[in-house]
Structures are given as structure tokens and as C-alpha cells.
Design a protein around this nucleic acid. Sequence first.
DNA 1: ATTTAAACTTGACAGTGATAAGATTAAGGG
DNA 2: CCCTTAATCTTATCACTGTCAAGTTTAAAT
Lengths: 185, 185
Amino acid sequence: MSEKPYHHGNLKMELLEKGLEFVDEHGVEELSMRKLAEVCGVSSAAPYAHFQNKEDFLIQAQRFITEQFTETLQECIATVKDKKKILLELGKRYVIFFYENPSYYHFLFSHGRVELTDYPPYQLFAEVVDEAFSEMGVKKKARRKKMLALWSMVHGLAGLSGMKGVLDGDDLEKEIEGILNAVEI
Amino acid sequence: MSEKPYHHGNLKMELLEKGLEFVDEHGVEELSMRKLAEVCGVSSAAPYAHFQNKEDFLIQAQRFITEQFTETLQECIATVKDKKKILLELGKRYVIFFYENPSYYHFLFSHGRVELTDYPPYQLFAEVVDEAFSEMGVKKKARRKKMLALWSMVHGLAGLSGMKGVLDGDDLEKEIEGILNAVEI
DNA sequence: ATTTAAACTTGACAGTGATAAGATTAAGGG
DNA sequence: CCCTTAATCTTATCACTGTCAAGTTTAAAT
């Protein structure tokens, strides 16, 4: 009883979700459209009704996590009251997100698909950081450079965070904090 | 006349060289063992006499550029006389290397194969930076954190350097210098 | 109720990594 | 110098992949 209906009903969404689960567990290289179709209980060609090709699927999947990531950062910004701590907290959140999902980092940045000018987390980061610098009395001309330096450090640490020998301490947050605070902004 | 000899004579080396050329031009995803074999004028199974599998080939190719990269850094260290400038110059060299070969960055760090503890450029960097910090009077305990912060920034900027909107100025070196100097070490 | 278009299946194609079995030849020991 | 041996390479093949064309089913719109 209850045969599978011919139409899945929510295939596109399930492909994205299961696909991201898969990437998180096994990495992008292991992902194939056919396996993904099977996981969703659908024929191997079905995904192509919703995505032009694999590349298109990957791009949309990337947008999907980028949105999640952006929300994480926004949540962080909303909950931090002490504005002086916002830089540190935002950086920490940034690093931890990718520490917890190492596959996502490579998935997002390994294909040169992301452009800074069209990357919401960066917009958000840039905005908040610029504001913070402004209040700290940093002159406008210097802000961009400082922001790029900070962004590079946070982004770089996020990428390195998965490597053995980088964040091996007991207290993850303290460890990250210590590193990010080691330079004067 | 002059038929191709049955034995190539230098296949392993040519595979690595042509493979890296290909990665530099088209990225890792485009690389296939078969195309590579064809480029080297050899049957599709020939590479497997020299490499266990594609993964093994990629690892060895990574070692190959890592060596080149290490040499670049060593050369930099050797030529910079003013020891106070060594941190900046080394960072610049690091960023420029990957700015000039964007594909290499992803190739090296996208697969979680590189471990910091077994990554010569890091060893080199750590050594030089630690020494510099020591002369600057930074206490031993703080050095590791400062070094990781600096490493993160340099490494992060190297990865971001290819993105539009990051290093778009006329003078590349000045641009990088400006960013790296924007924070107090 | 009939049409239309979207969502799916089946079957096919070329390209991929990889292996087994066999052909060629360089290298070294007798 | 010859013969053996092992390294190198080819051919043939397998399972798997991305993708498309053609046909099938069904939801939705008229």
C-alpha cells in the first residue's frame, strides 16, 4: 500500500538538502547526481528537470549554505550587546561555522564561483566592521585596508581551522579568541 | 622515421609537469588521467604504472608545487637583508605566489590533504616569524598566537587574492603591503 | 472535461577511473 | 653475449558518471 506517487512533490528542495548533507559528510568530490537521485528515490535523470546541470546544482547548493551562514552571522550581530566586542564575536562565529562544517569551506571557495562583491557574508561583515572602526575613530581611508586584513585573518583561520595542529586546545572559543586578539587592529 | 619508442623514458616526470600545467590553466576538476595520458602521447592505462591511482597522482603533484613554493619562500628569505622587513616581504611573496597561480591554491588546500605539521612552507614561515618576534621582544607564550594570526591573515589573503574586488589596484605589491600593514603585529 | 505543461522514467551516449592480461624492452647476472 | 627478469607500456574491458532525447504520468489551468 501507499505506492510512491509518480511526482515527488518536493524534489528540488530535497535534492538540495540531501546534497548538502552528503557534501558535509563525504565532501564534494564524492557527490554524484545519480547517487543523489537514488537517495531521493528518483530516477537518475529526474534532477535535470530542476537543474540545468551539475554545476548549476552546485551553485544553488552553495547559495543555500551561504544563506544559512549569513543568518548565523546576523544572529550573532543581533545577540551581541556590547558593541566593542562585536568584531571578536563575529570573527569567532565565522571561524566556528566552518570548523563545524569543514566540507562547506572547500565547497564554497574551491571553485572560484564566489565573488566578493556578490557575497552576502562579506557585505555584512564589511558593514559591521566599518561601523565599528568608525566608532573607534579609524579614518575612512584606513578602514578598507584594516577590514580586508581582518577579513583575511578570520577567513584564513576558518580555512585552516580544520587542520591538525591549529585549534587543538580544550576550549575552542578561547583558542580562537586568543589568536584573533593576538594582533592589534 | 624516428617512431616513438615503446618506452617513454621519462613518463612519471612528464605526467607531473603536464598535469600541473593543466591544473594551472583549467583547474583540478577538469583534469583526467586519460587526457593527461594523451597529452603525454601514451595509452590511458600507462600512468597507472607510476601512480597507484588518481588520488596518488594528485598528492605527488601537490608535493611538487609545494616544493616550488617552499623554494620561492626560501629565496625570499635569502635575499631580504633588512631583517625588520622579513615578515612583510615573506607575506607578500606568499600572497603573490598564489595570486599568480590561483588554481594552485585550491589544488593544495581543497582536499584536506595538507597537514600543518607536515607542511614545509609553514615550518619555514613559523621559524622565521618566531625568530623575528623573538628579536622584537615578544614573549614566547604570545608568539605562537601571533604567528597563527599572521599566518591566517597571509594565508587568507592569498586565497582571497584571486577574487574580484580584493586586489584591484594598479600596484599589486603596494596593495598587499597596505593590507598586511593595516594591523599591528 | 479537455488541454497543456511540468515532473518524471527509460534508454542511450561519450567520457571517466581502474584493472587484468598480454606485449615490448631496458638492465643486469651468468 | 645471451638469457632471465622486471619495469614499462598497450589493449580490452568493467562499473560508474554527466547528460540528453523520447516517451509517460499527472497536476493544474482553461
